[in-house]
Simulated scan of single mutants.
Amino acid sequence: MTPPLAGLYAITSADICADDARLLAAVTAALRGGARWVQYRDKLARPEQRLRRAAALVTCCHARGAGLIVNDDLQLALKVDADGVHLGAGDGDIAAARAQLGANRVLGVTCGDDLARAQRAVEKGASYVAFGRLYPSNTKPDAPPARLETLREAARSLAVPVCAIGGITPARLPAVAATGARLIAVVDGLFGADDVELAARAYMRGLEPYN
């Protein structure tokens, strides 16, 4: 049984994905620290590497009661029996992805700062919609900025959880969580930290007033 779509959402970085053992160790540390959703995002690995790593992460996450989402690759998500897939802009048809996933798997959709895109995504079957980057980001420094007001309006008007991403630190977390965003996605703030578990715990403390 997958956890609710809420809380700390750990998205793997290119740095840790370069090594299988490091990837598993870092994700395990994030889960120990409180993350209940992980997204496997790996743009550089070969197909056989991606298959091996995604399968290992499914096992790792499920052993700890967490969910695993695969970024951009619907077929890989289905092949390893992941809990869902996340589609960026231009990464495939949302309705077609929902049809292949079935009713029970998670379908996340990147929406930038575009509330209308989020509304269309929900109509086509999105389980959650993601807005960002909210702050300067090491992962996507050139991504267009998104506004907290867009998060607030999305949380108010949409029937699915809202995900916030982009430069969110524990210090910035209260302003983000106060918008009603339920999923807080973090890449570098977790996997760029010297101690991933400790970093995850810092985010979890920031989320406590909003749970």
Rank of each mutant, 00 (worst) to 15 (best):
V70Y: 05
N71E: 02
N71P: 02
N71R: 05
D72W: 06
D73A: 08
L74K: 05
L74W: 00
L74R: 09
Q75C: 05
L76N: 04
A77G: 12
A77W: 00
V80R: 11
V80D: 03
D81E: 15
D83Y: 06
G84L: 13
H86C: 03
L87V: 01
G88Y: 08
G88Q: 09
A89G: 00
D91S: 04
D91K: 01
G92A: 10
G92F: 14
G92R: 12
D93F: 08
D93A: 10
I94M: 02
A95F: 09
A97R: 07
A97I: 00
A97F: 03
A97D: 02
A99W: 07
A99S: 12
Q100I: 02
L101C: 09
L101V: 09
G102T: 01
N104L: 11
R105L: 14
V106Y: 01
V106A: 10
V106H: 10
L107M: 13
L107S: 10
G108T: 08
G108D: 01
G108E: 01
V109L: 06
T110P: 00
T110G: 07
T110R: 01
C111A: 12
D113Q: 07
D113Y: 14
L115H: 08
L115R: 11
R117E: 06
R117V: 01
A118F: 06
A118Y: 06
A121F: 14
V122Y: 04
E123H: 14
K124E: 15
K124H: 15
S127H: 12
V129R: 11
A130G: 14
A130Y: 03
F131A: 07
L134T: 07
L134Y: 06
Y135R: 06
P136I: 13
T139F: 10
T139M: 13
P141H: 06
D142I: 04
D142G: 04
P145M: 12
A146H: 07
A146M: 08
R147Y: 06
R147I: 01
L148P: 07
E149K: 12
L151K: 10
E153D: 11
E153F: 02
E153N: 06
A155M: 12
A155R: 13
R156G: 08
R156Y: 09
R156A: 15
S157V: 11
S157R: 15
L158N: 12
A159K: 15
A159Y: 01
V162C: 14
V162I: 15
C163V: 13
C163M: 15
G166V: 02
G167F: 05
I168P: 04
I168D: 00
P174L: 08
A175M: 03
A175P: 00
A175Q: 14
A177T: 04
T179C: 06
G180K: 08
G180T: 03
R182N: 02
L183R: 03
L183Y: 03
L183C: 00
A185M: 10
A185C: 13
V187K: 06
G189A: 10
L190W: 06
L190E: 01
L190I: 02
G192P: 02
A193V: 10
A193F: 09
A193C: 10
D195F: 07
